[in-house]
C-alpha cells in the first residue's frame, strides 16, 4: 500500500533558472500539498499534462527525491525517515530508464539482485521464471547495447521485478515505445495487479488509463485536481470521452488560477 499525505516539493531556483523561467521567485513548487492512497491489488494512475508534477511525485515515492514536507508510507514503512528499507519494497520503471549497454542482461539482472540483497537461491528461481515469462533466454548473454528497444524494455521489466517488490512505480512506462513493447508493459502492469501488488503509474495516455486503472488522481501545476475511483470519475464526467473530460478539468483549473 502507498499512503501519501500532504506531500510538497520545492526546488531552489538559481539565477539561471530564474532567467529561463522569467521569474523572480527563489523557489519553484513542483508538488503542492497532495494526498492519496494506493491499495494492494489495484492500479492507481497519476494523470497530468507535462510539467504537472507527476515525475517529481514518482521520484519522491521511489525515494530519489526527499519531500520538502509531508509523508509517504510504502508497505507500512515511512519512506521519508526510512528510505533505505522502503526501497527494498519498491520496483521502479520508467519509459526513459537507461540500461548499462556494456553489460549483458544476465550480468545486469544479477547486479541489481545483489544490490537488493536477493539470496542466490531466490535469484535463481526468479530469474528463471522472469526470463521464461519475458522470453529473454535467447539474448541473455548479448551486450545490452546491441539489443532492440523491445528487448531492452524486457530487461528493464526484469530488473524492476527481480526482487519481487510489493509496490511498483511506473513513471510514463510506455512513453516513446512501439505498440508491441507498450503492450508488454500493459500486460505486466495487469499481472502485477493480479498478483496483489500495489501499482501506481503516471501517464498522459488516456486509453491506457481507461484500460487499466481502478483509481486515479489528476495533478496540474503541482496541485491535486481529482482523487478517486475511476468508476466515480466516469459517473460524474461532463464530457463524452475521458480525454475531453481531462482537458475540461485542466482548463477549468487554469481559468480559476487566472
Amino acid at each position: 500500500m502507498i499512503k501519501v499525505e500532504n506531500l510538497r516539493k520545492e526546488f531552489p531556483l538559481g539565477r539561471t533558472l530564474q532567467k529561463e523561467l522569467a521569474t523572480k521567485e527563489k523557489i519553484a513548487v513542483a508538488v503542492d500539498n497532495i494526498s492519496f492512497q494506493c491499495q494492494p491489488g489495484r492500479i492507481f494512475s497519476l494523470l497530468g499534462p507535462n510539467g504537472a508534477g507527476k515525475t517529481t511525485t514518482m521520484r519522491m515515492l521511489s525515494t530519489i527525491f526527499k519531500p520538502t514536507s509531508g509523508n509517504i508510507e510504502i508497505a507500512g514503512i515511512n519512506a521519508v525517515t526510512n528510505s533505505r528499507d522502503a526501497r527494498r519494497k519498491i520496483g521502479f520503471l520508467t519509459g526513459s530508464t537507461g540500461l548499462y549497454a556494456r553489460l549483458t542482461p544476465n550480468e545486469l539482472i544479477k547486479y541489481f539482485a545483489d544490490l537488493y540483497e536477493v539470496s542466490d537461491a531466490d535469484f535463481k528461481i526468479r530469474k528463471e521464471k522472469l526470463f521464461d515469462l519475458l522470453d529473454m533466454n535467447d539474448f541473455q548473454n548479448k551486450r545490452i547495447g546491441k539489443l532492440s528497444t523491445g528487448m531492452k524494455q524486457k530487461v528493464s521489466i526484469c530488473r524492476t521485478m527481480i526482487h519481487d517488490p510489493e509496490v511498483i512505480v511506473f513513471d510514463e512506462p510506455t512513453s516513446g515505445l512501439d505498440v508491441i513493447t507498450a503492450e508488454n508493459i500493459i500486460s505486466l502492469i495487469r499481472d502485477c495487479k493480479n498478483d496483489g501488488k500495489t501499482v501506481i503509474f503516471s501517464s498522459h495516455i488516456m486509453s491506457e488509463v481507461d484500460l487499466l486503472c481502478d483509481d486515479m488522481a489528476i495533478v496540474h501545476k503541482g496541485k491535486l485536481l481529482y482523487n478517486g475511483t475511476m468508476e466515480n470519475f466516469r459517473s460524474n464526467q461532463q464530457e463524452s470521452s475521458l480525454t475531453a473530460e481531462f482537458i475540461r478539468i485542466i482548463h477549468e483549473s487554469n481559468a480559476a488560477t487566472v
Partner: peptide, 16 residues
Amino acid sequence: EKERGTIETLLTTPVS
C-alpha cells in the same frame, strides 16, 4: 550515468 538515465534506477535500490 545521468545522460543514459541509469543513475535513477541505481538510486532506487537500497544502497546508500
